[in-house]
Amino acid sequence: MTGIVVRELQATDEQRMLALREEVADGGQVRFATRHHVPYLQAVRSLHPDSTCVVAQTPEGRVVGAAWVRFGRWIRSGADADYGLLHSLAVHPDFRRRGIARAMTDWRLDLVDRRRAELGREVTAVATIQRGNTASLANARRWATWIGGELTVRPVPMRRVRPRARAGWQVRPATEDDLDVIAGRLAQRYQDFAMAPAAGRTWLSGWLVQRVATVVGLNTYLVVTDRSGRLLAGLGVVDEPRLSDLRVVAMPPAMKVAARSLGLVRSGGIMRNLPAVLAWHRPDSLAAANHLWQSARWSYRRHGTALVTTTDVRDPITAMTAAPGWLPSTSITLAIRTNRELDDGGLLAVPH
């Protein structure tokens, strides 16, 4: 790492960092690079304001590494807690195996430690690692107190045919009047999780009005109701392709054939994924929940190539999507650094 300086990102670094992101594909079973349609830093600051980026710079001023840490609140074993999510680590191939990734990781962990000292309470460091990303896994083993879990990341193609209408069920966007019920249902869903997103009424209200510059309506929460107006199930959709999309750099051959035939990957290797998040349904309303899911796949067919779910392989919510196991997918594991005892048997979900 001779001559390489690791420091916080400055506004003047944006173009150099974007050039790096276009050159460096995410590691793992499926490797991809991100294409941005709006100013990248503006998007990050709008959607995740409590974020900090570290860069690695050569003596000539070239940015050859970058990584982010994002702070927020989530649920740890039924209680509110703080986290620092380490993500988007990238090092230019010509500068790997020089300790740059390690230095940027240590820089971010130090930031987590400082946040813990400021708050006077535990701040859990967490990272997600895609299957096959051996370098990131080796890096995590150095600092994590626990590595485990398996969360499937599955893109489900949009529907080409409108789902059949079901008597008595109505699918519509949620309103402010629905948020108390939605927040309560999500709290019930996540109460037994070891780790899960915190999605109370106030957070949901803010999430629904998030914007990046002139791009509004990014997040929508859909619900299905019965004849009496009772909420039966809910699902959040993030219209991410309005901000960025993915260019596939490498994918296992069999997965690539399946992805192209299903329309998950378009010409030029482009994937336009919409994350589907914060799903729940009443115990007696699985059929209505599946109808909501199919309706979302139809409603967003012109917005992107797929709705993408990220779920613990043990999570019963997978029955809501009823996605066939042969659909192309990858998986992630979690790396955690915590001073608190971790419930190894609890379900896992990543923070949003």
Rank of each mutant, 00 (worst) to 15 (best):
S261V: 08
V249K: 15
A250V: 00
A276P: 03
G263M: 11
P283E: 09
H303C: 08
S244E: 00
Q294N: 14
T311V: 14
V215G: 01
K256E: 15
G269N: 06
T309A: 15
L292A: 07
W298P: 08
L235P: 01
D239T: 10
L243M: 06
L222F: 12
R260P: 00
A259C: 10
A250Q: 09
L235Q: 13
W280R: 08
Y300P: 00
D312S: 05
V238E: 09
T311C: 11
L235I: 00
L232P: 04
V249D: 11
L235G: 03
S228G: 08
L286F: 07
R242M: 03
Y221S: 01
D226M: 11
T311W: 15
D312W: 12
R260Y: 03
W298S: 08
D284R: 03
V277T: 11
V249F: 10
W280F: 15
P275Q: 04
G263S: 06
L231S: 05
S261H: 06
G229T: 02
R230L: 06
R266I: 04
D245S: 15
A296Y: 07
W298D: 12
G268S: 09
A233C: 01
Q294E: 15
M255T: 02
P283R: 10
T311M: 15
L286D: 04
R260G: 08
W293G: 01
E240R: 15
R282E: 14
A306Q: 06
A250T: 04
V277I: 13
V249P: 03
V249I: 14
W298K: 12
A233P: 02
D245G: 04
L243R: 08
V257C: 04
A296P: 06
L232I: 00
R302Q: 12
M251F: 10
W280S: 02
W298G: 08
R260K: 13
D226V: 03
A233I: 07
A254N: 10
R282F: 05
S244K: 12
L262N: 09
V224E: 11
L278E: 03
Q294S: 05
A306K: 08
V265L: 13
R302D: 13
L246P: 00
H303P: 01
D312E: 09
D226A: 11
N273V: 11
H303R: 15
R242E: 01
V249C: 06
W293D: 05
S244D: 00
V238W: 10
R260S: 09
L218N: 02
A250E: 08
K256M: 12
K256V: 02
L286E: 11
P252D: 05
L292V: 01
S244P: 00
Y221L: 07
I270A: 14
T310D: 09
R272C: 13
S228K: 07
W298T: 08
D245M: 07
G217H: 10
W293E: 06
L231M: 12
P252V: 03
T309P: 05
V237A: 10
N290K: 05
D312A: 08
G269C: 05
Q294W: 13
N273R: 11
G269H: 07
L278T: 04
N219T: 00
